[in-house]
Amino acid sequence: MTSSVTASLPRPSPFHLLLAFGSGGLLTLMVDFNGLVGLYATPFYSSWVAHGTGIVAALAFLALLRLRPEAGAGGAKPAAPLWAYLGGVSGALTVILTSTAVNSPLALSGTLALGLAGQVVFSLAADRWGLLGMPVRIPLLRDFAALALIAAGSVIIIFGRGA
């Protein structure tokens, strides 16, 4: 194993792992809550309301941290390109695509499993080539083993529940 390759690939620390797992737990809760609003109204409305209330919540959090949105870029940080503000477009479209797929023969299980596949393919490419201005990270055999274990476990859970 060459040191230059491993050096370009910082591994997660226990703190990173706990934060990511906790973030995934929040996602479970969020999908559940948004799904409930979608059940009473529509999935589209649910996403619209979640984005709207999210703006208010983000402003409240920023105020708590005494940071205004404009005051974010300070000191030595590189300026953000204009496209970096467009992450929300992709997020908004996701809801529409997902609710379409869930209502197809794929159902929830198939939609989740294929969504997982889409995330894996894009994320591997994003790391390999450092897409959209992020650092290049060449995955090693160990990373693929971790990926395979987590993906296999997730697919077993997804279809075990759906059955």
Binding site: G24, Q119, V120, P139, A151, G153, S154
Partner: peptide, 16 residues
């Protein structure tokens, strides 16, 4: 920690 590590650990947490 990169895109793939973030994606997999978040998905893992979501599943658990």
């Amino acid at each position: 920690i990169g895109a793939i590590n973030t994606a997999m650990l978040v998905i893992g947490g979501q599943m658990v």
